[in-house]
Design a protein around this nucleic acid. Structure first.
Length: 930
RNA sequence: AGGCCUGUGGCGGAAUUGGCAGACGCAGCGGACUUAAAAUCCGCAGAGCUAACCCUCAUCCGGGUUCAAGUCCCGGCGGGCCUACCA
């Protein structure tokens, strides 16, 4: 049949026409608008379901086919839950501040506000072309002043708060201030009292408690990006973005006291339904270690405190190491000039090495002896103190006791510098300590006695508690829990970010902008390029008129500072993560002008446990997901939100990869340089065999696929269906353009079931085929259960099977003879609609339905159709299937056994041998042992 | 180096909780329709042995538990992700 004879076929053009038509209608109708409590159309009798996609960063390149994978999954669940009678919140918006937009702007010379807006418009267009059921009325971007106003407001709430350790939650800093006045407490080491302290001293003291605080920190400075980076943004000593070297330097920066929440962030991982791998990554990032603090006396200096997880090995501590940045190093240099030159040289050398260098130069330990000793509190011996860069200032106390016999790093260092090694633990596996390597596991203490007590004979766990008890009793140390998690560096030397609502006066004291004066708008700058320099210079400093203002103009409360006081604005901006820390809350009530989210909307949509289903990539396992949990917990403590955790259930979609080709030497070849032959792939230019491998999509391999091209060739429904049919949502899967035709043909069959391709008229069966009816019920049941478990690939397979069964053979002359009845078609379309909404909406309308299929109820299932009266059971003889018997579905084991043993084929296979044992698993199988 | 995940036809993948391995799709092969092709429809299709049935082998490799293992356990090998001097 020619195209001329089938003018009403479902092809790319028809798909495109009907898809864009329905998309336009959904948009003008506000078809997926979710009503908030209090609105007229709100239905309080329905349960809520909040389903969220991870906040996209709209890059200039637009969507690639990886983006719609998660979005299609959430869209299917959204449409399904709607049909199941839920009030569904399914919003979309833009995470639009950040480094890439600014870098792109600097490259092109176009202002980031302009490029970001056009990238957003492009993303929105692409998403809308895929027919996603977003409530677009709630859309916003983090760059909208009405949004970042509240980002600044939340930051101020943190600024005005501290962590009350006693109560285990955040409290207003004003309460702490009042206590300081009341106790007239000592606020520094010199025992200066609050009442006699200067304003600067008081502020500095309170800054050591604020949740958002300013302080001098060793930061990760990335000269190539001209900004500092958070620990989390550094991978293998290089910037996560761009892979540039990173150096450490001290800098006065805004920080978040996330460490105050370390224990709760760890504990509450038990409350969420997240992938185990992600929870493990977060808990390892938080890195709780139990151990002890031990004080070592250093003649003239005082106490040198170390942290150790193995206090039981204290008797084996034969030397100590401090980080090059440790104050003791400075102290030694000042006191012993004859050694200081070499020590200073080492310190300078180690400081100038980037983290990359430190790791690149293998694990060869470096260090230098300080020429002083400390007293091991357990043995009373004097042991040497060294400095070495394998000890990090940022962890613990920046000093360690070295137990070379039982720690690999200490052993390597001791071996290199010929330091003494003493065994104090006998390994529990019985292996003798040879001195060839460290034995790090648990065991039984030995060589661990002094005149006061002994650990000898105690297992590691008891030895540890005994040692801690002795340290505590003799005031030489105490139990201590340490976290790997560091406070969160929250300043960036960037233009394209949220300004901090804070100013400094001439004394250097900081003052908050009052809430009423928010937002602090990002000033228009024509030169926003980062300043390349050896030290961080924020580009906002170039906005001199904006920076230099008065307290009154900036919006500082007159009670804090006289309005005429000249002040300087903070010129750092917030990092890209800021906006994504709370966007899910704003969606609940995105147009609210008086609060970041109304209490009513927040309580309704967040409910008991927060967002019901959150889908996004696992690359955010520790960054965004940890930061957002932290903000959420602060807001919870401060009474602003009602749940302890933001995201009840999290799911990571896998990556969509692509094919590339590999030469014999392992190098990769771009897809356009290869052609396929009958017996394999050939690199065209050199006529050599290559093998097909799976690779990430990349421009250089020419294997990037965009939704736009797929939509043009097949339509959005086919793209959605293909992405869901590729395999399990969580798995990484290779894109194979050739496979798309399978799901496209499926949709063509669906169309052909309902529409006569020659005339365009409806073609429905007059009478229902009982076998089809049974299969239809089973398919709908399977689709529903598969959607609930996010197994979309098998749901689609079931629908394909149904459609294949119902498809009319060509020989059938009267179209009304085969296929589905009107009622069957109605039910089938509703099951398919979440996956392929446009074609279903179109056919639904052609069935004569007046309202959108998205608003129709999920089809009901006749439960009696799900079970058969009898089933065929496989019968194994000696564990191998030899026969099948038909038994009543609900037959019990005895009945089944009788039927099986009387079956002719079974008897033949048994060859006259009597059954020794018959194992019957009703509804499954039978195994006869002879 | 350690931790977690993973390995099933030519390819993507199915397989409740240990119960008939390979659903469904792609690619392939055969047939119908057609002057022919495309499209459509109907079949075949893990490997070996067969005319066919049967049978044998088969879920990375080697052991084990079990009436029964793709699934559980132990030991290897390959792929992926995370962490990587955190005391």
């Amino acid at each position: 049949m020619t195209a001329h004879e089938t003018p009403y076929r479902y092809d790319a053009a028809r798909a495109g026409e009907l898809e864009t038509r329905w998309q336009a209608k959904w948009l003008t109708d506000g078809a997926f608008r979710a009503a908030n409590p209090g609105e007229e159309s709100f239905d309080a009798t329905r349960p809520k379901y909040y389903i969220l996609d991870m906040f996209p960063y709209p890059s200039g390149a637009g969507l690639h086919v990886g983006h719609p994978e998660g979005y299609t999954a959430t869209d299917i669940v959204t449409r399904y839950k709607c049909m199941r009678g839920f009030n569904v919140l399914h919003p979309m918006g833009w995470d639009a501040f950040g480094l890439p937009a600014e870098q792109y702007a600097v490259q092109t010379g176009v202002h980031p506000a302009v490029t970001t807006r056009s990238a957003i418009d492009n993303f929105r267009r692409q998403l809308q072309r895929l027919g996603f059921a977003y409530d677009w009325s709630r859309e916003f971007g983090t760059i909208d002043p009405e949004y970042y106003r509240w980002t600044q407001w939340i930051w101020l709430r943190a600024y005005h708060s501290y962590y009350d350790e006693a109560r285990g939650c955040a409290r207003p800093i004003a309460e702490l201030n009042a206590q300081c006045v009341q106790d007239d407490r000592a606020i520094d080491a010199a025992s200066a009292r609050w009442s006699s302290a200067s304003e600067q001293q008081r502020q500095a003291y309170l800054d050591t408690f604020r949740l958002a605080y300013i302080g001098v920190q060793t930061v990760n400075w990335c000269p190539a990006l001209a900004t500092v980076l958070a620990n989390e943004e550094i991978i293998d000593g290089r910037s996560e973005r761009g892979s540039h070297p990173v150096y450490r330097m001290p800098l006065r920066q805004w920080m978040f006291r996330i460490t105050a929440y370390a224990q709760r962030l760890l504990d509450d991982l038990a409350l969420v339904e997240w992938p185990d791998s992600t929870r493990t990554m977060q808990s390892e990032w938080i890195g709780r270690s139990e151990g002890a603090e031990v004080q070592f006396k250093v003649e003239g200096f005082g106490e040198l405190t170390v942290f150790t997880t193995r206090p039981d090995t204290l008797f084996g501590a034969t030397y100590m190491v401090v980080a090059p940045e440790h104050p003791l190093v400075q102290w030694v240099c000042e006191r012993a000039p004859q050694q200081s030159a070499k020590i200073s040289e080492y310190v300078a050398w180690s400081r100038n090495r980037s983290d990359v260098d430190r790791q690149a130069e293998s694990r060869e330990k470096t260090g230098i002896a300080l020429g002083i000793t400390a007293k091991n509190p357990a043995t009373g011996e004097s042991i040497a103190i060294w400095t070495a860069d394998y000890v990090l200032m940022a962890y613990g106390t920046g000093a360690i006791m070295a137990v070379p016999a039982h720690d690999e790093r200490d052993f390597a260092f001791a071996a290199r510098f010929k330091l003494p090694i003493r065994q104090v633990v006998a390994a529990s596996d019985g292996s003798a300590f040879t001195g060839e390597s460290a034995t790090c596991g648990a065991g039984v203490a030995c060589n661990s006695s002094n005149s006061e007590f002994t650990l000898d004979g105690l297992a590691t766990a008891q030895a540890t508690t005994t040692m801690i008890a002795w340290l505590t009793a003799t005031q030489r140390g105490q139990r201590r829990v340490l976290f790997r998690l560091r406070d969160w560096l929250f300043s960036r030397q960037r233009y394209w970010g949220e300004p901090f609502p804070i100013v400094f006066d001439e004394r250097g004291m900081h003052f908050p902008i009052s809430e009423q004066a928010l937002p602090v708008q990002l000033p228009q700058l024509t030169d926003y390029a980062p300043v390349q320099s050896e030290t961080p210079v924020p580009p906002l400093g170039k906005a001199t008129h904006w920076v230099n203002t008065t307290a009154g103009d900036a919006g500082v409360d007159a009670k804090l500072l006289d309005p005429a006081t000249p002040v300087r604005r903070e010129t750092n901006t917030m990092p890209g993560w800021a906006g994504s820390c709370w966007y899910y809350l704003r969606y609940c009530d995105s147009k609210n002008a008086t609060r970041f989210v109304s209490r009513e909307a927040e309580q309704y949509w967040m409910g008991e446990r927060g967002v019901d289903l959150y889908i996004g990539g696992s690359e955010h396992a520790v960054l965004h997901l940890l930061y957002a949990r932290f903000w959420h917990k602060m807001l919870f403590d401060l009474g602003e939100v009602s749940t302890v955790e933001p995201f009840a259930k999290l799911f990571h979609q896998g990556m969509i990869t692509s094919f590339a080709f590999e030469r014999a030497d392992g190098t990769l070849v771009a897809t356009d340089a290869v052609h396929e032959t009958a017996d394999g792939w050939i690199e065209t230019a050199v006529n050599a065999r290559v093998t097909r491998v799976i690779a990430k999509m990349s421009k250089s391999l020419k294997n990037v696929v965009t939704p736009d091209e797929v939509v043009a060739e097949y339509g959005a429904d086919t793209l959605r269906l293909y992405e869901m049919y590729m395999g399990p949502l969580a798995d990484s899967k290779p894109w194979n353009t050739r496979d798309i035709s399978g799901v496209f043909r499926f949709l063509q069959r669906v169309w052909r079931l309902a529409i006569d391709e020659r005339t365009g008229s409806l073609t429905l069966a007059r009478t229902a085929d009982p076998a089809i009816e049974r299969q239809l019920n089973r398919s709908i049941h399977k689709v529903a259960t598969d959607i609930e478990r996010l197994a979309f690939n098998t749901a689609i397979a079931a629908m394909i099977e149904l459609v294949n069964s119902a498809t009319r053979p060509t020989a059938m002359t009267d179209p009304a003879d085969g296929g589905l009845t009107r009622d069957q078609m109605s039910r089938f379309l509703r099951a398919l609609a979440p996956f392929a909404p446009h074609i279903c909406e179109e056919l639904w309308q052609r069935l004569g339905e007046p309202t959108s299929i998205a608003k129709s109820p999920w089809p009901t299932i006749d439960a009696s159709q799900l079970v058969d009266e009898s089933i065929a059971l496989p019968v194994q003889i000696q564990g191998k299937v030899r026969a099948h018997v038909t038994v009543p579905t609900n037959a019990d084991a005895a009945q089944i056994e009788a039927i099986v043993l009387s079956d002719a084929k079974v008897q033949e296979a048994m060859a006259g041998r009597p059954p020794k044992k018959v194992i019957v698993v009703p509804k499954r199988m039978v195994n006869v042992l002879v």
